[in-house]
Design a protein around this nucleic acid. Structure first.
Lengths: 213, 213
DNA sequence: TAGATTGTTAATCGATTAACAATC
DNA sequence: TAGATTGTTAATCGATTAACAATC
């Protein structure tokens, strides 16, 4: 029952709309036009209307959009009205930092477990949850209705761990390992390649210096 | 002296090419054709050739591309042949995790300082560097030839800190704060909005479930 | 009703892919 | 020289922007 496919370009903009609308709502703003929102967000009003209309009409001619309603609708589209249990694989600095990050909870992402192979880390506490050994991974994923695995391990182990997770019913992988994962259709992967991001920054610094030397 | 502008779509792919070429090089592969690389990376050969030709011809008809040469050239394009001093503003979990991440050093990004306003964190050690108080920020940036500031503070303080950094000669901000910064032309900003990324994942899980219920 | 602003179609722009002549 | 594969032009595709009729 394929709905008309929404492009990832559009999806990628939804969280930003969601954030702006949330802030407007907190400020008590009731309604906003695509024109006003476009000035605030520095995108075209046309794009805003096109984006929203991918999901049906949220606005009203002559009025604009109701901020609170639109905020909630986008939240639903993003699936933020549902709870998602997640685990972290890799209890190094980054893994522990993500485990301690409380804002995910607010959006329905619930931290359920954290794993590492390093005996020194096992048993350590991350926000009330003890680091578990890798051997427990499969059982834990199956028995605790885990949707999302956050991979914060070195790239050498990542491909094998991803397979083990997929085989035990994970739905999605948030991949911080610096390697491309190859997963079956229907398993969602979102890559956060921090060093790639830093290299882009480096390119733009370099380019700017060249153009203005 | 404006060179013909390269689109950010192309720039965004360069780090991935760089990674694959580095791995090929480490495996001792000497030459590769756009066709072979396209199969490996799952992009079209046409795109690969177009991308590289934005920067001039790195290949040779009938031969392909020399892996080591291409790797180094892309490294240069990305500015990885130069050193960039960076500081971290915000010594929370994420800030400390990034400070401890050694791989940045390999690419020429040198960790020089870390700052926080929390008195309990000041003086703590992050990879040999003591957390400094915010008051020292301006002087430190000016006196230590700092190119890049990594912002790992809550969004409330981020805009003000960005201004202070810009006023003291920073070139680029790697922004992990969940807010859009408004900086003058010529200051590079690369956003890493982790919760946006997680929301995209959430959307894709939800969509897949709907399509296959 | 008149004014405002959406929803949506049409036009434009840019990015990707295909094709092939140039050349190693 | 013949074969391979690039560099580059042309064709296609998709995303963004503009325009305007529909409608609140």
């Amino acid at each position: 029952m394929e709905e008309k496919e929404i492009s990832q370009a559009v999806i990628g903009r939804l969280p930003r709309y969601f954030r702006y609308l949330g802030e407007l709502r907190d400020e008590g703003v009731e309604r906003i036009s695509s024109q006003e929102l476009s000035e605030l967000m520095k995108v075209t009003a046309s794009q805003i209307r096109q984006d929203f209309n991918n999901f049906g009409g949220f606005g009203q001619q002559g009025y604009g959009y109701n901020v609170d309603y639109l905020y909630k609708e986008i939240g639903k589209i993003l699936g933020l009205d549902k709870k998602h249990n997640f685990i972290i694989v890799g209890a190094g600095n980054l893994g522990r930092a993500l485990g301690n990050y409380l804002n995910f909870e607010r959006r329905g992402f619930i931290f359920r477990g954290i794993f590492d192979q390093n005996p020194e880390l096992i048993g350590q506490d991350v926000r009330g949850i003890k680091v578990m050994p890798m051997e427990k991974l499969e059982t834990f994923v199956r028995e605790n209705d885990i949707d999302i695995a956050v991979l914060t391990i070195p790239k050498t182990g990542a491909v094998e761990i991803a397979d083990r997770l997929v085989n035990n019913g994970i739905r999605a992988i948030w991949n911080f390992a610096h390697v491309d994962l190859n997963v079956p259709d229907g398993i969602q992967v979102e890559n956060v390649h921090l060093s790639d991001s830093l290299m882009k920054l480096s390119y733009n610094i370099t380019r700017y210096m060249k153009e203005n030397q």
